[in-house]
Design a protein around this nucleic acid. Structure first.
Lengths: 207, 207, 207, 207
DNA sequence: GATGAATGAGATTTCATTCAT
DNA sequence: AATGAATGAAATCTCATTCAT
């Protein structure tokens, strides 16, 4: 109202944004160490803020976890975009390596990855579908592999990362080698039909 | 484990065994339906016994879950033994299909499968190693695949089963097709070194 | 199972019943003193039991309050039944006096009285309707008074009891005198139409 | 209360008054809709001001509610003054109708009406006493009715309004008919002694 | 003087485990 | 040996009030 300050409304938000970042960082740390069953009070303590501040930013524990997943999906989508510039249809493999490595460093909210925030998951899966088409076009990936197969591949990597992260943080690389070997063109087709998109949507909605 | 007490304890012990079986069946049902977060009180209720009886048989909730895993591993080992009779090195593939199908019907304690009850897991993994050797001997599986790789494969199937069981209970078959395609002999070796047995032991101890 | 005790299943419940009674008594005391906003933890503390015990008996705070209301309605219905034996249509007045006096001694859950436990409230109101008809038959109560009017009368007494209980615990008697004076047959009819039964039902459902 | 500060504070004060009015209007709306348990944050939000502004005007939530009661009492006193001009001792009845109708439209702070702001309540009750005396002088109201009886009458109406406002907003009119019928001169006196002024004062102080 | 972010105690509810009967 | 009632320590979420900007 009064013309005393030149900047009108933003400075009030600075501490709030800082706190939000601190909370997300704390949540990543705590969930990485203790799993998603860790208490939100612990997150607030590590972030150095009160419970009410956490509540103000994230009205529920789920909302906090969703925000973490959102961050990871953001980066993941960016990685898919970057990988699309790789030559000769190698983008898909590059993306799987990049995103897996990233997830290995943020394992806390992996159980929720792919199972929340429908819009971003869809976006990520569209990008991955493009990478798959390009890889198939270059003959690097078997023609009968579908995008739903790739989603199961990512579930698989997620599981290996979550299981091995403490004692063998690179174990997923070997497993990814195996999965990619299975994705290469081979003599016959995969014996069973792929998961339908509709079934996958139901799984992603809440699983 | 302990030798039986003289004479008068036998009829009581029969009740005890009945209770134990009822509890395990109830636990399977409840954990299948509600996940491992279901309360032990619910298990006792479904079993039709009191909490005290449950705790007499299984001193902690963990012990109850371990017993379920024990059951599954028992069957799994039996399946491996049976699969070993398959001809032409197809036993491994047969075993993976059989055990996966069985796990898909007992998904409740999957999160703990492979991560408890060291002795039985070792026994199961020894049998699987035999199947692997036989399959490699017949040229059905790539020579550079190790037994630790197979453990990750089973982690992978476990994850797909757990994720898809509600809405697409057969989805794991397609994923297993892909994994086996990757396990087939191929032009090159897998790019990264396999997980060491020591690392896997640490993971299995508690992960 | 074993024939050692003559009484089969009841003794196990004795402490539970005791605790339930202690909890109801404690809830009455605490709510009388502090109002319904008092914490259930305080109720448990006064009762000398743990929170879990309270929860086992009353799965929610509402359930606890409902149980108190249930008790009061039980007594109230009994009072209505007794009052019906009074001669010359004086039963209604007797009932209003008795039930008001009783409520004055259990003011804690008055805010919920008449607004919960639909079945019992309906039963109580049926008994009161009988008393009203009898009183009107004897010419003690104006003919145009309806049962919904009487419910408002009871709301009114409830409010006076709740407001004056601390400093003038008998104030409701004077107010009841006034209400009964208004209920006596008079020269004209009451100017406005009575509350319809349907509207009252809606009010009682949740108000 | 305090004399105004010299010159430069006047425009600021105008803002302040605007804010105060906005807050009171918002509080009325919010408390009417959600009851007195509504959060002060909601009041501030509806008023379009910050929490700090609210707390500058009203140092506690209680103070805010008291201000609302103050407003209602202001209008109520004005209604009593107007009603005093009615002829033939009908002023009291007119006042009861007017003030009840007004309260029915501002039910939010009814639970606190008559129980705060001692000075204004006394003033209102003095005016009502005058109306009562006039009505008794004209023989419209029974001679043994006291001013404390009338306060209980207003408690009663408050309760009926609060209970029925959602589903039968005019129900209080019928109840007021009944109360006035009881206040009319009758054959005998009311059976019990009226509430003493001293007891009522204690009740009003905090009940 | 205004803003709204931060606080943190406290409320209800849950549940693995113990123990009196 | 069986029962299931009791325990009490969390966990999540709420909100009146304070205070940095």
């Amino acid at each position: 109202m009064t013309p005393e300050a030149p900047v009108p409304s933003r400075p009030l938000r600075r501490d709030a944004v800082e706190n939000r970042d601190r909370l997300l960082a704390a949540a990543n740390q705590v969930f990485d160490e203790q799993g998603l069953d860790a208490s939100v009070a612990e997150v607030a303590r590590v972030a150095g803020v009160g419970m009410g501040t956490l509540y103000r930013r994230f009205p529920t524990k789920d909302a906090l976890i969703d925000a973490l997943v959102h961050q990871i999906l953001d980066i993941t989508i960016e990685m898919a975009t970057q990988a699309a510039t790789e030559p000769d249809g190698t983008g898909l493999e590059r993306f799987l390596e990049l995103s897996s490595a990233y997830q290995a460093q943020h394992p806390g909210c992996l159980p929720r990855l792919w199972n929340t925030d429908h819009a971003m998951v869809r976006k990520a899966r569209r990008r991955i579908a493009d990478l798959l088409a390009e890889a198939q076009h270059h003959g690097r990936i078997r023609p009968d592999l579908t995008n739903t197969d790739l989603t199961l591949v990512m579930f698989s990597i997620r599981a290996i990362v979550a299981t091995t992260r403490m004692h063998a943080p690179d174990a997923w690389r070997r497993h990814l080698d195996l999965l990619i070997a299975g994705m290469r063109p081979g003599p016959g087709e995969l014996g069973h039909p792929p998961l339908s998109q509709a079934d996958l949507d139901r799984i992603l909605t809440r699983a």
